[in-house]
Amino acid sequence: MSHKYIIIVGCGRLGTILVNRLSRLGHSIVIIDKDTGAFEGLSSDFSGFTIGGDAAESSVLQNAKINKADMFYALTNNDNTNLMLAQIAKDIYKVPFVIARVNDPQRDIVYKNLNINTICPIIIAADELIKRTEG
């Protein structure tokens, strides 16, 4: 297993389940959220770091040591925020692997045109349902 330093923004339902699992796999995780109450959903064996703050402020990303990150996931429920954070991580801090969550499937193509890797949970769910339908 290669041990990665991963920064994740957004500790909602997706962020929480993801960091709990990544942490269990042995990766070093930093999770950032504006609302520190969001960290209460992290499991007791979560061994990463939490930072309460607005990731759009450069000091917050610097405190998270974004320049050292192997991966950066922008997973908030706001598509514009995710796009902006992904661009900052990719273009300013040169993080090797960046993904933005896209909540609105119609925007997915726009992001792809901007050369940002995306993940759209709704498209993934639809794909999976089609796969199961077709058997």
Partner: peptide, 27 residues
């Protein structure tokens, strides 16, 4: 996080290496 507090005080006692949270393996 992002802090270098008490660096000089620590140095008086012979400590010169610091890491700030969050810790990451490469550093």
């Amino acid at each position: 996080y992002g802090s270098v507090e008490n660096a000089v005080q620590a140095m008086k006692y012979g400590a010169v290496d610091f890491v700030s949270k969050p810790l990451e393996p490469a550093t």
